[in-house]
C-alpha cells in the first residue's frame, strides 16, 4: 500500500541534494506530507523513513517533538487558524479573542470543526506584535484582529 503519491515522494527526494545527510530532509518531508494530506499517518512515516534511510521511529521522534504535525487519526481542517496568546497580544485582548473564536466555532484549541473547515490553535508569539492581537491563517499573519474582524475572517474560510 502506498500512503504517499509518486509525486509527493519525488518532491521529498528533490530536497536530498541540499544536505550532506538524508536525515536533514525529515522536517521538509513532514511539511510536504502534512500540507498535502493534512496529517502524517503511520504509513506515511514509514515511507518517509524509507526514502531517507532512517528507522521510522527516528522520523516519529522528530515529528512529535514539534507538536506541530497532526498524526494518528487526527487531521487538520481546510484552514488552520492560530490565535496568538503571547504577551503583546494578551495585553491587547488576545485571550478574549481566543475565547471568542472557541465560542464561535464551538471547538477548543487543537480541535477541528465538525465540518472539517477550520482547525483552531493557540500560538505563542507569532512575531506580529505590531498588529496585536494577531492571528496566523495557515502561515500568513492577520493583524489587529478585533472580534468583528475575527467573525469576518471565520466566514471567509
Amino acid at each position: 500500500m502506498n500512503a504517499l503519491s509518486e509525486d509527493l515522494k519525488n518532491r521529498i527526494k528533490a530536497y536530498l541534494p541540499r544536505y550532506p545527510r538524508k536525515q536533514a530532509v525529515v522536517l521538509p518531508a513532514l511539511h510536504l506530507v502534512h500540507d498535502e494530506m493534512r496529517t502524517v499517518s503511520n504509513e506515511a512515516i514509514v515511507e518517509i523513513a524509507e526514502i531517507l534511510e532512517l528507522h521510522p521511529s527516528e522520523v516519529h521522534d522528530t515529528m512529535t517533538f514539534y507538536e506541530f504535525f497532526k498524526h494518528d487519526g487526527d487531521k487538520l481542517g481546510k484552514t488552520r487558524l492560530w490565535v496568538c496568546r503571547g504577551l503583546a497580544c494578551m495585553l491587547r485582548g488576545g485571550y478574549e479573542l481566543l475565547e471568542h473564536c472557541e465560542h464561535k466555532l464551538g471547538v477548543k484549541c487543537g480541535e477541528t470543526t465538525s465540518d472539517g473547515r477550520i482547525t483552531l490553535e493557540f500560538a505563542e508569539c507569532i512575531g506580529a506584535c505590531d498588529g496585536a492581537p494577531a492571528c496566523l491563517k495557515d502561515d500568513v499573519h492577520v493583524m489587529n484582529v478585533t472580534t468583528a474582524k475575527a467573525d469576518e475572517l471565520l466566514k471567509q474560510f
Partner: peptide
C-alpha cells in the same frame, strides 16, 4: 521567536 520581537520579520 523571542516573544514580542519582530524586527527580523
Amino acid at each position: 521567536s523571542e516573544p514580542c520581537t519582530y524586527n527580523n520579520r
